[in-house]
């Protein structure tokens, strides 16, 4: 292997890795039995795959063309920050709709998730605490 081939091989390997992870994440979205399990695929595997592709882009533009770009790092930082937040929001919606018995919301083979140990119930079902943004009583 010559020195000029290194950027192509590195970027190509990262692209293949990213494509494989994205495929695994979406396959998990199709294959897994309930929403709480299905959340795992897109939030972890697909985000990691996209991170690999963004690193491949940085490597390719830096080593192959000599241009230093930072947009990709911005995109990956934003995605790695927002993926857990949106997954948390979706899980909260699922818990509320599951308890309300909405159509289409199945608990999955393991049954509905139990309340967390050491607490009365999931925090999303509690009334807002005094002085927090969700507390409209004292307005």
């Amino acid at each position: 292997m010559t020195g000029t081939a290194l950027p192509e091989v590195l970027a190509g390997a990262l692209i293949v890795l990213g494509g494989a992870f994205a495929l695994v994440g979406s396959w998990g979205l199709v294959r897994l039995p309930s929403l709480m399990e299905r959340l795992h695929g897109p939030t972890k595997a697909t985000t990691l795959g996209l991170g690999a592709m963004l690193v491949a882009s940085v490597v390719w533009f830096q080593l192959g063309r000599g241009e230093w770009t930072t947009h990709e790092l911005l995109v990956s930082a934003f995605l790695f920050l927002t993926a857990p937040v949106s997954a948390n929001m979706i899980a909260k919606v699922h818990l509320h709709r599951l308890r309300a018995g909405e159509a289409g919301e199945g608990p999955g083979p393991a049954g509905a998730p139990d309340a967390p140990p050491g607490g009365p119930d999931w925090a999303t079902f509690e009334a807002p605490h005094e002085g927090t943004p969700g507390d409209f009583e004292g307005d």
Binding site: G25, L29, L35, I90, V93, H94, R97, A103, G104, E105
Partner: peptide, 11 residues
């Protein structure tokens, strides 16, 4: 469910 559809759109 609706949550499955939101998750699919996000993905």
């Amino acid at each position: 469910g609706v949550t499955d559809r939101i998750l699919a759109l996000d993905t």
